[in-house]
Write a protein that binds this DNA or RNA. Structure first.
Lengths: 233, 233
DNA sequence: TTATTAATTGTCGTTTTGACATTTAATATA
DNA sequence: TATATTAAATGTCAAAACGACAATTAATAA
């Protein structure tokens, strides 16, 4: 085997597929790229991995720098390393997907940064292989969300069952039966019903719930099965 | 944002966690490292990613070079990129896990190469962060195998239900009820019963089965649920 | 008082599950 | 030839989960 020194060296970057939910739709966050090539084209939020940080840390840093967001749910998707994926120079990119509650950061995003939310179906064409990354991330999000309670990351602390259901419907691109859905959600034991109601959506109002954080932590790695008849995207 | 040219460049490697099944036990394939540092210590099969190959291709190449194995089931695990994970120079490593039928390659391995199979519980200590990689791969293997029919990659073309069950028991480190297991396996519709029997294990003999390849391809991405009461490792 | 609107909840037949032991097919042995 | 042995294959049953389905409830508006 060859020595280290004779081996080629490469750039390593991270790219974040940031999914958000605004109470109605599943969206992704895009930015206009700030450097050549493809400057001013729409792109995922990304950046190079620095000398003293891990890819995970780089993703957190890049996300904060571009959007002000901190402490976001981040999960490694996969590495993208086709030799020609970046036309300037060979660059490996570690894909991450992030989950956030859009309303929580709305002002912050609009005022200080020029990142923009897009409906996934109406997003502009992205640079390089970023469209493929989005597709992969979408698939993985759906997969994980069917088995793990990660979608709560995209909701406010207090949320209603109808809100939760809409989110699941968006992620899975399907309609879910109200009765069966709430039965399944209840059976997880993850939710705590609050006294307060959300009156914004109806006259009757919907009860707020919050996460049982202890059970949430315990179930992050556990298996649920929230979506019936799940087929591949 | 900074220009490409001012960014640090790194080495990028691949490391393969090769799982194998010999009819009795789940094992992993290790080699004695051939370069400094840590020369002659036990290690995963790995190598640097060349200029004109993707990480996937590099993994296939490295696997072939070190073991003679070709066309093996390979799946990306995750990237390992802690700044100090390699003491000589910063190196990113893309972890892959591979699945093979040990008996199919037995002679080839022993004669031509000095790779060695180890029971997972009895493996030697590995270099760098390779022990963590093995742990992660083991977890992911169990996770995937509970939902996708990938374990067939570790069996010969003709196999028996008892063999299959032993493999599932090894992967999940648990005993499975024979009756419930064969019912579940049957209900997947993935197996085709052959006339021939395997007489090596008993007087009565166990019928051979083969995969229904069409259904196998269709179900690779579909959801199964073969292991009851699955808990995190 | 009534109409309206969305939230909430219940039933029922079917399927799947998990826990359990017996029967069967072939060879070895008495 | 009959019997013992061994592992493979299979059946039952009660409980739980599932999916399809519509009626009731709580609050405000008219």
């Amino acid at each position: 085997m060859l020595e280290y020194s004779s081996q080629p060296h490469y750039l390593v970057a991270v790219d974040c597929i940031v999914f958000g939910f605004d109470g109605e739709h599943l969206k992704i966050l895009l930015v206009k790229r700030g450097l050549e090539p493809e400057i001013n084209k729409w792109s995922l939020i990304g950046g190079f991995v620095g000398s003293n940080e891990s890819p995970d840390e780089a993703a957190q840093r890049v996300l904060k720098k571009n959007t002000g967001l901190e402490g976001i749910y981040l999960e490694q998707l996969q590495i993208y390393g086709e030799p020609a994926r970046d036309p300037i120079e060979r660059t490996f990119s570690v894909g991450y997907f992030a989950l956030i509650d859009i309303n929580k950061y709305k002002t912050q995003l609009n005022d200080d940064y020029h990142a923009e939310w897009f409906l996934i179906s109406e997003r502009p064409k992205l640079i390089f292989d970023h469209d493929r990354m989005v597709g992969d991330a979408r698939e993985k999000l759906r997969y994980k969300a069917a088995l793990h309670p990660i979608l709560f990351e995209m909701l406010p602390k207090k949320f209603t069952i109808p809100q939760l259901q809409i989110l699941f419907e968006e992620v899975n691109d399907t309609k879910i039966d109200t009765r069966n859905f709430s039965r399944k959600i209840s059976s997880t034991g993850l939710l705590i019903k609050l006294e307060e109601k959300d009156k914004s959506g109806s006259k009757k109002g919907a009860y707020y719930f919050k996460l049982d954080k202890k059970k949430y932590q315990a179930n992050l790695q556990a298996f649920l099965n929230l979506i019936p008849n799940l087929k591949p995207l």
